[in-house]
Amino acid sequence: MVEPAAEGKPRAKVEVRDLTIRYGAKAALANASFEIRENEIFGIVGPAGSGKTSFLRVLNRMDQFVPEMETEGQVLIDGNDIDRWRNLYALRRRIGVVFPLPVGLPLSVYDNVALSPRLSGVRKKVDLDVIVERCLTRAALWDEVKDRLDSLGSLLSGGQQQRLTIARALSQDPDLLLLDEFSIAVDPVTTMRIEDVLKDLRDEMTIVLVTNLVQQAARLADRTAFFLTGELVEVGETEALFGGKSEDERTRGYLAGRFG
């Protein structure tokens, strides 16, 4: 199978077909089929243990870190089955990931952001400088760290580290950005700043936003999926879903804050 040529952004459409994720005998997600469209913010909401993180892991094939994890079905990115991608690393380079708890790598702020470009062969300092400044600026962090680029990334505050991880994800120049409950360890002001960043990024990439805050999905997502204990209950336009017009009683109940 030929890997798609890197031309003509924006792209990254995700098709999920009959996806089942299992840990041993237990299904973390069963028979889910849906589509994530190009350049949309796709929200995924649902209570803890619904399979949201497991789904994200499948998307960039990080399942190898969990030996007992098995998947069935198909996930296609731009029409290509991710299981048949010959160069796994090339697939992952197209996908930026932001974890629930910020992971500032034990490197300087600069090197955190420069790591990915370096790994893909950018060597010149001037080029790296440009990338680092651009990504940090876009992650709304540049002004706060421009004087301490050489200090350890792990010394930044939690909110700053989370923006650093976003800058790092952007340094990959991704087509697809996955965010897993990014605001869990971040103060409300920073959360709002990151939300603004995401709105701008929508023009350039497809964003999958897993969130524990129903209101965050309401604010940002074009369409939203509701996962409940391994079942994809519903996918729809966010406005329709949140307008109380959902046909499913469980969706209405969860979104209204009656459980979860």
Binding site: Y89, G96, V97, L115, T165
Partner: peptide, 16 residues
Amino acid sequence: AVPEGYREAAEAMGAT
């Protein structure tokens, strides 16, 4: 002693 999260974060970026 190096936290697993570092490896995972780097590998998620496409590092070999």
